[in-house]
């Protein structure tokens, strides 16, 4: 019996493929996309103003009207996107020299050590790292202690800049690794050719290296940007400036699911736009 089944699958490769993919594809389409779909449906459903219960299939655009009529939502969306963009730019600015050193200058031994050093923080828990930053940033924290001789004190846990700092720290490895891989892919002879044709270090970087790193930078930025835009724990724990995620969380906690769902369209649309641009820059060939 077993032999006959395996024999049949051997004769029908497409059926084999379907049987193998049925599980994972089913999981993605039903459990993953399905739940996302239901979540987004909530945005178009009304809420009983008396009981506060969501009324499925009672279509309305109230939730969107509520968001559009309140400028706070706009401020929060702009703040989130702005910080995410800033985190991405900062991570790229740090990743370029670090990855360049790793890929082009460091000895094989140092390169291995640096790769471990870059990936090591990924082994630690996300929450542990954020709490570590809290102890650094709080008014009487490590940073405050270090700068107290100069009459300064720690930034405390309210500054919006804290979110920028901590998010950059968290997502930096995701930028360094693709940029490092991108640099490794540039043949040495291209750099020699540029020098041979009269290009000094800076010109070679600007004209030969950087343009070829754009796909790698776009790939890294997908991580830094999307992870930043979706984060709500960092802004909650190290600052008092809310992100989109905090508003969604707060609204669902209060039971206003339609508003939460409607607001979650913002990061989704931003990310779709971002991915389209990244694809044009060749990011997906660099992942």
């Amino acid at each position: 019996m077993m032999r006959r089944i395996t024999g049949w699958f051997n004769q029908h490769p497409r059926a084999t493929l379907r049987a193998l993919l049925a599980g994972p594809l089913g999981w993605i389409s039903i459990v993953y996309l399905g739940s996302l779909f239901i979540l987004l449906m909530h945005a178009f459903w009304s809420k009983d103003s008396f009981t506060g219960k969501v009324e499925p299939f009672n279509w309305t655009l109230d939730a969107f009207a509520q968001i559009l009529s309140n400028p706070v939502y706009f401020t929060i969306a702009a703040r989130t996107i702005g910080i995410a963009a800033l985190v991405t730019i900062t991570a790229a600015a740090i990743a370029l020299p670090v990855a360049y050193y790793m890929a082009r200058i460091a000895s094989p031994r140092k390169r291995a050590l640096l790769l471990v050093a870059v990936t090591m923080p990924l082994w630690a828990s996300y929450l542990v790292k954020i709490y570590a930053w809290r102890t650094i940033l709080q008014t009487n924290g490590l940073l405050g202690w270090a700068i107290s001789p100069f009459g300064l004190e720690g930034p405390g846990l309210t500054e919006i800049a804290n979110s920028w700092l901590v998010l950059t720290y968290l997502w930096l490895p995701y930028m360094i690794l693709p940029v490092y891989a991108g640099l490794e892919r540039i043949p040495n002879s291209l750099l020699e050719a540029s020098a041979d044709l009269g290009g000094r270090g800076w010109i070679t970087f600007r004209r030969v290296i950087f343009p070829q790193l754009i796909p790698a930078l776009a790939a890294g930025s997908i991580f830094t940007f999307s992870l930043s835009i979706g984060d709500y724990i960092v802004p909650d724990l190290v600052s008092d400036a809310k992100f989109i995620g905090n508003v969604i969380y707060d609204n669902s906690a209060l039971g206003s699911f339609p508003v939460a769902a409607a607001f979650s369209f913002v990061p989704i649309l931003v990310m779709i736009g971002y991915l389209l641009v990244a694809r044009r820059l060749g990011a997906f060939e660099s992942l």
Binding site: S189, E192, A193, S194, D196, P211
Partner: peptide, 20 residues
């Protein structure tokens, strides 16, 4: 002298053309 200060040019074995 570094390569960029020498009045010589090279044709590379792998051509080394800038792909972008």
């Amino acid at each position: 002298l570094p390569p960029f200060d020498r009045d010589v040019n090279t044709v590379f074995q792998d051509y080394a053309l800038f792909p972008h």
